[in-house]
Design a protein around this nucleic acid. Structure first.
Lengths: 107, 107
DNA sequence: AAGACCTTGACATGCTTGTGGTAAGGTTGG
DNA sequence: CCAACCTTACCACAAGCATGTCAAGGTCTT
């Protein structure tokens, strides 16, 4: 039996076994499986679990947010669409006088 | 009265006035205000509203996801933390044999 | 001055997320 | 072979999200 079982991985990362299964379902941390179906967490997965934990505790990131970040990394079309929206956000930071020519945006 | 009122902006973007107020509260699209307190949507904001709509319809992005993308854009520390997690995701795509040296990740 | 619009605030609601249990059954290691 | 673990599949439930609607009052245009 290579790797750590779900209980061992849980003990080492501060998650509950229940949540580790949930995270797998959400596609966030997906371990290999043994022939008999046991989850096998490797050092890589333990690392992912710890950094995921840090993201929630230190930045208040929800799991869906992190999943979305992964999509941004893998789907160029999605990244492009978000980039378009962000352009507007950045311009909004400018004051009204500086935006006199926003008409250009509609073209 | 410069700009469009909330009702006009709603009519032009397919959102309800209620949602436009909600989006402002969520910090996603924040219009200027007239002296008497009316929201004033400019062409820039209409554009943001339309691209936000596209993000939901074409990519199934939730509002919280988009808000998170904005944070990623503005908070370098958050971006770095996500980047760390993503590194694990990318490695997971490799097969087990290729990961023999994952031990390095713990150092 | 009136009608149509706007403001905030509250209440309601259906859906999703995150989390815990519990039950019935398979695997493993001493 | 037995205890301690694992598997899936459910039920439950608090909290949050996305919306709608309604009320009491202010503003704008004609």
């Amino acid at each position: 039996m290579k790797g750590f079982t779900v209980g061992e991985a849980a003990a080492q990362t501060g998650w509950s076994p229940r949540m580790l299964r949930y995270l797998e379902g959400a596609g966030l941390v997906v371990p290999e499986r043994s022939t008999s179906g046991y989850r096998q967490y490797g050092l890589l997965e333990l690392n992912q679990l710890r950094s995921l934990r840090a993201l929630r505790e230190r930045f208040g990131a929800e799991l869906t947010d992190v999943a979305f970040a992964a999509r941004l990394d893998r789907e160029p079309a999605l990244r492009a669409a978000v980039e378009t929206w962000l352009a507007g956000t950045r311009l909004s930071a400018l004051d009204w006088e500086q935006r006199k020519h926003e008409r250009l945006l509609v073209a």
